[in-house]
Design a binder for these strands. Sequence first.
DNA 1: CTAACAGTTGAACAGCTGTTCAATCGTTTG
DNA 2: CAAACGATTGAACAGCTGTTCAACTGTTAG
Lengths: 133, 133
Amino acid sequence: MQNKDSRQDRKKAPDCTTDTCEIVYVDHKKVSSVIRRMKPEPVVQRIAETFKVLGDPTRTKIIFALSAAELCVCDIASLLNTTRSAVSHQLRILRNMRLVKYRKEGKMVFYSLDDSHINNLFTECLRHVEEYD
Amino acid sequence: MQNKDSRQDRKKAPDCTTDTCEIVYVDHKKVSSVIRRMKPEPVVQRIAETFKVLGDPTRTKIIFALSAAELCVCDIASLLNTTRSAVSHQLRILRNMRLVKYRKEGKMVFYSLDDSHINNLFTECLRHVEEYD
DNA sequence: CTAACAGTTGAACAGCTGTTCAATCGTTTG
DNA sequence: CAAACGATTGAACAGCTGTTCAACTGTTAG
């Protein structure tokens, strides 16, 4: 019983790339099974990129604000107590990730959320955050 | 009809903090309504922090891997083709955010996901990512 | 005890990121 | 047309981030 799954499937890695290539034991069966279940690289990259974009406080607040109402750049800047320039830069990033869309009305540009999943993402994240407080 | 909601509630902001404080029109009614609906600052910060932690490709992959199986540091490093040190650093960050937990077995440390919401977050994010391809 | 080794940690460093500032664009108004 | 102004953009810069490297800890095996 002292020799569970953690030892018997471990073999010296021939293509060891870890650290200074000491002898390293890896559970190859388990690892290759996990590799088979991983999402393809481009998908992982896009997921990471999406989370990253949501992971800046200014952008988080913009998303929250836009989930409550359609707003122009001035409104958002006033709301967040920051400059129109800073907001505009962040809105470009959100636009590029298709997280917000915009509508022009004369000189003004009104922004709103582009995607219904975003609210679900925030709801789920909120649930995690509020779990331990 | 040419004067819709975008103009009539806009007033010069007395506490204008945007740019060089030119005359700036803000829809105060709308803005204060949105402010009332915003989450409190610490909650926003924690949400942003959580997304940020998930927004690094290495950490994204670690989470994906751990959602498939419990793994030790060596397994993960082998899986991601990186060093144990790099993985260990990232695992510390994930641990601090209570996203992963660990279990020691002799010299080895086995990591697994700590939170059921994480899988939901990834599922929802995947849905967004796969929408436009 | 000593050697081996899985894992952690801190310092250093290169690369990235968000804000600021100034210049510019486009639309509206007088 | 010119002035006003909402919005965007690019450059610059400070601050942050992730990896690497080397040193270290703790456990196991001989």
